[in-house]
């Protein structure tokens, strides 16, 4: 029983990390209507900034919370700048071409990070106390608890932002119907820029939360991005809480299958995630929390 609970908790813990990446993907999708393949690499780059600010040996040695704040602020500016310089020339292009541009960004940012910082593995401290809460035979680290709390708050805040605030509505409007939004006086380009900035800022936070587990390196987000996509599709690509729930489901299914179905073992962990996606897409194409897209003809 303790082992089962431990697996459940592992699954939720890992799943929250996938959810964090999914959250950034969902945000940029809602804000700009595009899928950003460079999302993971942008988060990785910001995490290196956090590391540079906080590391005692190679960086400035600031407190880790200050480092994360710096990384998040940098993330916002970095995302906005990328939109302005790299994405804007393709603003009127179709989504396919925009996606190819983000693939190019993926490669460029990865190489840039290795060149500017290091290709070595670096350690980032956790903002939460070390150690774990032990209940019976089950242990939950304070880091896991902290990550869960931060991400829940963030998902709810995003839902409020998009559902209740003028800025959120303007961002959504700009992505869903740029023409009408412009007629209503919304500065569409500006909204897209803010959308990219916010999404990169969330990516920076996700990176800083993931890093104590996966360490900081140019490759840190690559597999996570895959799981993040799985989580986002599962939760519905346009729902922030859905992204987290999707992440947790992927994490839990993985933990259970690798623990209890020896035939599948650990080699096919990724495959189990995709089996789950296929099932959901067949039964509920819009994802668990997504809205069916309706078009006026």
């Amino acid at each position: 029983m303790a082992l089962f609970l431990q697996r459940l908790i592992d699954g939720i813990g890992n799943g929250m990390l996938y959810g964090a990446v999914a959250l950034a993907l969902v945000l940029i999708y809602r804000a700009t209507g595009m899928v950003n393949f460079a999302q993971g690499e942008m988060a990785m780059f910001c995490t290196f900034i956090t590391w540079k600010l906080a590391d005692h040996e190679f960086g400035l040695g600031l407190p880790i919370v200050a480092g994360i704040a710096g990384g998040v602020i940098f993330g916002f500016l970095f995302g906005a700048a990328l939109e302005r310089v790299v994405i804007r020339p393709f603003e009127s292009a179709d989504h396919l071409r925009q996606m190819i541009v983000t693939l190019g960004l993926f490669l460029a940012i990865n190489a840039l990070a290795a060149w500017i910082f290091t290709a070595d593995t670096q350690r980032l401290a956790s903002p939460f106390p070390s150690g774990a809460l032990r209940l019976g035979g089950v242990s939950v680290s304070y880091h896991q608890l902290g990550v869960i709390a931060v991400l829940l708050v963030m998902a709810l805040a995003l839902r409020e932002l998009f559902g209740r605030t003028r800025l959120g509505l303007a961002i959504r409007g700009a992505s869903m119907n740029p023409e009408s939004s412009r007629l209503l006086g919304v500065d569409v380009s500006r909204m897209l820029m803010i959308g990219w900035g916010l999404s990169a800022a969330i990516g920076a936070l996700a990176g800083a939360l993931v890093a104590p587990a996966v360490f900081v390196s140019p490759g840190m987000m690559q597999t996570l991005l895959l799981y993040g996509f799985a989580a986002a599709v599962l939760g519905g690509f346009d729902s922030a809480p859905g992204a987290l729930v999707g992440g947790v489901m992927v994490g839990v299914v993985q933990a259970m299958v690798s623990g209890y179905v020896p035939a599948v073992g650990t080699q096919l962990q990724l495959a189990t995630a995709f089996a789950l996606i296929l099932m959901v897409l067949l039964v509920r194409p819009q994802g668990l929390f997504g809205r069916v897209s309706v078009e006026r003809v």
Partner: peptide, 13 residues
């Protein structure tokens, strides 16, 4: 698998 993002599940077992 080399390149797997995390091995927590294996360690729990």
């Amino acid at each position: 698998e080399a390149g797997e993002p995390d091995v927590k599940n294996q360690i729990t077992t």
